[in-house]
Write a protein that binds this DNA or RNA. Structure first.
Length: 496
RNA sequence: GGUCGGUUGGCCGAGCGGCUAGGCAGCGGUCUGCAAAACCGCGUACGCCGGUUCGAAUCCGGCACCGACCUCCA
């Protein structure tokens, strides 16, 4: 029996009990990157949020098919130019070289932040035939028209049958028209300003083009997600995700396209992540208020005082809820980094906690069991990572107290001790996808041997009250980023 | 301009009618050769003005500021 889960559905504007279309299976589609440039840090936050959702759904016992696309054609910008074509000209490369370059860099970044790969990662250019089919379906059903070789979605025709267009983004078409009215100039071949292209006739110089009965051209951006989601997940599937800036027009138009083509809306639950700010303001290249993942890793930016590891950044992001805006700053990262280290140290500590013999019951059990169950309950409430994290830190305090003997480990039963360890490991490593990245350089076992030797030499010096030597060893190690911790039963060490 | 969301202590960030969020920083203590770590304890909050309520950070109204979307964006 899979535990219940509540998900905030953008479609209804409230939390709903999650009921998958096919019991024990979940189909999830998330809009992936347009590979014309490096991933934006805000993009990373969004993908991390969905990575945690993916991991948690699997942890609950669902069989999850997670589809995240690569947009490698059709994403237009102001003036109707294809982003990838434009970048190709700029870098003097073929469009597909641009696609390859930035797809690889995107994958590298996902790996660095320890994201699981999606189950399927389709490319828009790999699904052109299906997109052409969907254009035909929409045309045949009377919700699109041809104009000068391009095919436009006919909002007015659609509205007559489906007056709920705009529901997801809370928009009324009348309002849309008021704004888009003066935007007519660039697209005089449209019947109506709110109409959008599902097939674009290619300009002669446009290299990415496919032959159809209407023109040589390429598919519209909204169309590819409509096609790839339903091709791999079925006409209706469970969860559709993306950044909340995609609600309109992208997701709204996806719903319209799928409904126009096959009569049903694609997704049951729509999940939208919120934006990442920096120093309280939106990240903006033009205002110099921006930072890239690479700059965070190297510390090479005026906005930060030092380098931060990918896992410290991932931890930082999990401290806020995915539906809230999050403000990144040096102070906030500094604090997050320390909290992250404390958490990782506690995992190591917990794994070393042992009973000398099996203990059947303990007086601390009743106090500890609610702490063990809390992270699960918080995650089941719309993936509340900050509250789950807070619950895990309650557990960390207990683990540390047991370790130093301030709480008596013999007052905890063996099964409860085991559950404490499992909870910490499962949530931090398995669901939050964190790992200890401090020991990444070199062979840890050799290093540990060396440090143990120094610890022994220092212990001898301390016994001889040779404080000068013992402090020299400790300070030298500190300078190398290795911290010694003198406890009651000997000295241990961690990376700082 | 229109639509929607936000404003929580030194910083980040949960909570969203009565119940300690958490992390980091600060203060006091225990431990220690000293320090660090760890543990225990402490403090400083809910943008402003009204209203509803026995009770409001949480609900309602107004104002101010910030942000998102409306155009490419996660």
């Amino acid at each position: 029996m899979i535990p219940t889960l509540q998900i905030y559905n953008s479609l209804s504007g409230k939390k709903e009990i999650f009921e998958p279309i096919h019991p024990e299976h979940v189909g999830m589609y998330v809009c992936g990157p347009t590979v014309y440039n490096d991933v934006h840090l805000g993009n990373v936050r969004s993908f991390i949020s969905f990575d945690v959702i993916f991991r948690f759904l699997k942890h609950l016992g669902y069989k999850v098919r997670y589809v995240r696309n690569i947009t490698d054609v059709g994403h237009l910008q102001d003036g109707g130019e294809d982003k990838i074509s434009k970048r190709a000209k700029l870098e003097r490369l073929e469009p597909m070289e641009i696609v390859q370059k930035y797809t690889i860099r995107f994958h590298d970044m996902m790996r660095i932040f320890n994201l699981l790969p999606p189950s399927i990662e389709p490319h828009a250019t790999g699904n052109i035939l299906e997109q052409i089919e969907m254009v035909r379906d929409i045309l045949n059903n009377g919700f699109a028209y041809e104009s000068e070789g391009s095919i436009y979605f006919d909002i007015q025709a659609y509205l007559k049958k489906h007056p709920n267009y705009g529901h997801l983004s809370g928009r009324k078409v009348d309002e849309l028209l008021a704004v888009t009215r003066d935007d007519l100039k660039g697209h005089s071949d449209k019947k109506h300003p709110a109409d959008f292209a599902i097939w674009m006739k290619a300009e002669p110089e446009h290299i990415m083009r496919w032959k159809t009965e209407w023109s040589e051209g390429f598919p519209g951006w909204h169309l590819e997600c409509s096609v790839m989601s339903t091709k791999y997940l079925g006409d209706t599937f469970d969860i559709h995700g993306g950044g909340n800036d995609l609600k309109f027009p992208h997701h709204e138009n996806e719903i319209a396209q799928n409904t126009a083509a096959c009569g049903v809306a694609p997704a049951k639950y729509w999940v939208h992540t919120n934006m990442l700010l920096m120093n309280g303001r939106k990240m903006s290249k033009s205002e110099g208020n921006t930072i890239t993942p690479e700059e965070l890793f190297t510390g090479d930016s005026a906005h930060i005082s030092k380098a931060y590891s990918p896992m410290a950044i991932r931890f930082f992001m999990l401290q806020s809820h995915y539906r809230s805006t999050m403000d990144i700053s040096d102070d906030a990262l500094l604090a997050a980094e320390k909290g992250y280290h404390r958490l990782m140290d506690a995992i190591k500590t917990s794994n070393n906690l042992m009973h000398s013999s099996v203990i059947k019951s303990g007086v601390l059990d009743a106090h500890l069991i609610p702490l063990i169950e809390a992270p699960m309950d918080e995650m089941r409430d719309d993936f509340n990572t900050p509250k789950a994290l807070a619950a895990l830190f309650d557990l960390v305090t207990k683990i540390n107290a047991l370790n130093t003997g301030q709480l008596d480990i013999n007052q905890v039963s063996s099964p409860v001790l085991q559950r404490m360890k499992e909870t910490l490991n499962t949530f931090v490593l398995g669901i939050f996808g964190l790992k200890d990245d401090r020991a990444s350089a070199g062979d840890t076992s050799t290093l540990d041997g060396l440090i143990q030797l120094l610890i022994q030499l220092r212990a001898q010096a301390r016994e001889d009250k040779n404080w000068a030597l013992s402090d020299r060893i400790r300070d030298a190690l500190t300078n190398l980023g290795i911290q010694l911790k003198d406890g009651q039963d000997g000295t241990s060490w961690t990376f700082v």
